[in-house]
Nucleic acid binder design. Structure first.
Lengths: 192, 192
DNA sequence: CGCAATCCATACTCGTGCGTATGGTATCGA
DNA sequence: TCGATACCATACGCACGAGTATGGATTGCG
């Protein structure tokens, strides 16, 4: 009945637990991160867990650090490699909009900002992304202060979108309508 | 040591509990809504609580409904009373930006969207606000589809802003810089 | 005044989830 | 092959928060 899909994975490592934790966080939230639940899901018992980690808190910490390193560095690198600066913004928007899966952990962590352990991680990640956005806006021709504010606005729109769609299921937008929304966003937020 | 600031409030009513619950939700989140904690804060014990409410769930429900009715109807009414449609958007933005206190409950509920009880409430409230925004954009001269998408974008920016500032304490923006941000937002999101 | 209804305190039970203790089994190198 | 190390199971203890039982206090009303 528990049925972990993983085919007979005997003998686990700390990384296995961290990955499982991130999966669980992604679709049930940080609050649902319980060791016995995780153990069931992995087909073992608590006894295993407390060999790899000293405490539940330690697992969370490890999982968060792992997630932070996984970083979407490829995405950033690919965007930066584009020759025409004006083309970077639309490309970034479209890319993020159509690959929402990797952002599910971020959305979940967004809802756990009262938890002391996630705050510094989210602060660092968000800060880095904001700086990246600001740079792109500068390269697209905006003056420094305008670029910063536009980056703030854009990132806020991103965060708000995650909340309103993943977690809340707002007007259950259709695929075509979503594309239209993305294009509207690009027209509105991209400097002329 | 517990020290409720309220001056000798003997004899409570259900509404007192609901208000206290909303205050607690506003600055500690839905997860922190515990009956014994609330009781301490009100200077009484659980015995009182379970006279007014059948369960903790019932309190949450009542508090949510109370909050939903409190509604910011005055704000909407005042905006709608303005004669010049083009002036409504900037005014709405500035007003919301400078009266953030009433939005703290909304921000807290945003982080509790996994909780089944808050989803329908948030869905209704968000829906109403979105429709209001859409109407304003229409009156400001945008065609129907553009107005809808612009409303989505604006509301997402609002939601994202709440997350990034209340809960996360992002770059701890200064007052002047915040005003500049708001004006930038108005220029960017308001149809020319 | 006196009696109901209302409001609250005290003292429990009970489920849940973390962490510990301890012993068992698999794997690998010498 | 055999012991050491790595990995896991079982069975506990313990804290915390929801809900219950019951009796005491306070208020309004006849």
């Amino acid at each position: 009945m528990n049925a972990s899909a993983k085919p007979e994975r005997t003998r686990l490592s700390a990384e296995d637990w961290e990955d499982a934790a991130l999966r669980l966080i992604a679709d049930q939230g940080v609050g649902a991160l319980a060791v016995e639940a995780l153990a069931r899901q992995l087909g073992v018992t608590k006894g295993s867990f407390y060999w790899h980690f000293r405490t539940r808190e330690a697992l969370l910490q490890a999982a968060l650090e792992r997630w932070e390193q996984y970083g979407e560095r490829e995405v950033i690198a690919q965007i930066e490699a584009m020759p025409d600066p004006r083309a970077r913004l639309p490309e970034l928007f479209r890319r993020v909009a159509h690959e929402l899966a990797p952002h599910r952990v971020y959305a979940a962590l967004l809802k756990a900002l009262d938890h002391p352990q996630v705050v510094p991680v989210m602060a660092r990640v968000s800060q880095r992304r904001m700086e990246f956005l600001t740079t792109i806006y500068r390269e697209a021709g905006l003056p420094a202060d305008e670029a910063l504010n536009r980056a703030r606005l854009t990132y806020a729109a991103y965060v708000g979108f995650l909340q309103l769609n993943f977690t809340l299921g707002l007007p259950r937008i259709s695929h075509d309508e979503f594309d239209a929304y993305v294009e509207h966003m690009i027209r509105t937020l991209t400097p002329a």
